[in-house]
């Protein structure tokens, strides 16, 4: 059920001849009480799905913006349980799929099976764990399958052809194409071969391919969307919401349609 909501959202976008836009927000940044309101705002602004970051003390895949948002969330006392409880409150009325992005340890500490079960109860569709490569996913796959939560895998610019094939073959929810060699955060430009790389991924992936990491302007959104099924935007959204600049968020999301 949960996973299906995500698949349906991508299908709707695709059928309309549009591209997907998945914004990332850090749960607890700006106060947990504003979380559901922010989700509604992003959905109303046209988000295809929303990535919800659960803060972790040592986010090695994240750049300065998301690190800082994580620290703000942790200092505000954000816990895994509190986020899931908050999200569960509006489950029935919510019309946008949610995907959790966090690191393995908070999930492991909660208990993998218990976490999958709680996610299902809160209406979560997918899970992204940037520190869980193919080699270690045995720790979570059974539990996620049981509760119909998509394990969203990341493919990197450094991935070898064999690894790309293995990742594309197993793709569920969406395949997260990391567009830079590095951490999350704004970039001015991307490598020249990125377009070809994304097109190749799209050809072999079993799920939609979304480009993310460093996507921060409407121009990026338009440029990258032409090669794949859409984009994930993290740091720029986190920053704009932190600054209270909601118009910038709306403009970014709208840029997927132009």
């Amino acid at each position: 059920m949960s996973k299906a909501m995500l698949d349906n959202a991508f299908q709707t976008v695709s059928e309309a001849g549009e591209k997907a836009f998945v914004p990332y927000i850090m749960a607890g940044d700006g106060g947990l009480e504003s979380l559901n309101e922010r989700i509604r705002f992003l959905a109303d602004s046209g988000a295809t799905a929303i990535e919800l970051g659960l803060p972790f003390s040592d986010p090695v895949a994240d750049g300065p913006t998301i690190q800082a948002a994580g620290i703000r969330a942790l200092e505000a006392g954000t816990t895994v349980q509190a986020v899931l409880d908050e999200v569960a409150k509006e489950r029935a009325s919510r019309n946008v799929p949610l995907v959790i992005m966090t690191y393995l340890n908070p999930v492991f500490a909660y208990g993998v099976e218990a976490f999958a079960s709680a996610c299902a109860a809160a209406g979560i569709s997918g899970l992204i764990l940037p520190d869980l490569p193919l080699e270690e996913e045995g720790l979570v796959v059974e539990a996620l399958k049981k509760y119909e939560i998509a394990l969203i895998r990341l493919v990197a610019l450094t991935s070898t052809p064999e690894r790309i094939r293995a990742l594309a073959e197993r793709a569920e929810g969406f395949l997260y194409a990391v567009t830079v060699a590095g951490t999350t955060g704004e970039r001015a430009t991307f490598v020249d071969q990125l377009g070809t790389h994304l097109q190749e991924l799209k050809e072999i992936s079993k799920a939609p391919v979304l480009a993310g990491f460093g996507v921060s302007t409407p121009e990026h959104v338009k440029e990258l969307s032409q090669y794949c099924d859409g984009v994930v935007v993290g740091s720029k959204i986190v920053d704009a919401l932190h600054q209270g600049d909601r118009q910038q968020v709306k403009d970014l999301i709208m840029s997927r349609k132009q």
Partner: peptide
Amino acid sequence: GGRFVPETLMPA
């Protein structure tokens, strides 16, 4: 033990 690193690092 194990190898809990981002995909970008796995090839290395």
